[in-house]
């Protein structure tokens, strides 16, 4: 069985997968925190866009 040379060390591919899994979980938490904290901003942007019907405006020159 080949093994993957990674981070200067030799580890089993299953462990690499696990490492990817952990990294993914680690991405989720800060992202969700930011989304919740910024939700008022999102709401403002959304209401503004739909009240202006921004998509109907003529393209700028």
């Amino acid at each position: 069985m080949w093994r993957w040379v990674f981070l200067g060390t030799v580890i089993a591919p299953a462990a690499v997968w696990d490492l990817g899994d952990i990294a993914l979980t680690v991405c989720i938490l800060p992202n969700l925190l930011a989304l919740v904290l910024l939700s008022s901003k999102t709401r403002t942007l959304m209401d503004d866009y739909f009240s202006r019907q921004a998509w109907l405006q003529q393209p700028k020159d």
Partner: peptide, 8 residues
């Protein structure tokens, strides 16, 4: 990659 077919 490697050839560990553990199907991960």
């Amino acid at each position: 990659w490697d050839r560990d077919r553990a199907g991960r």
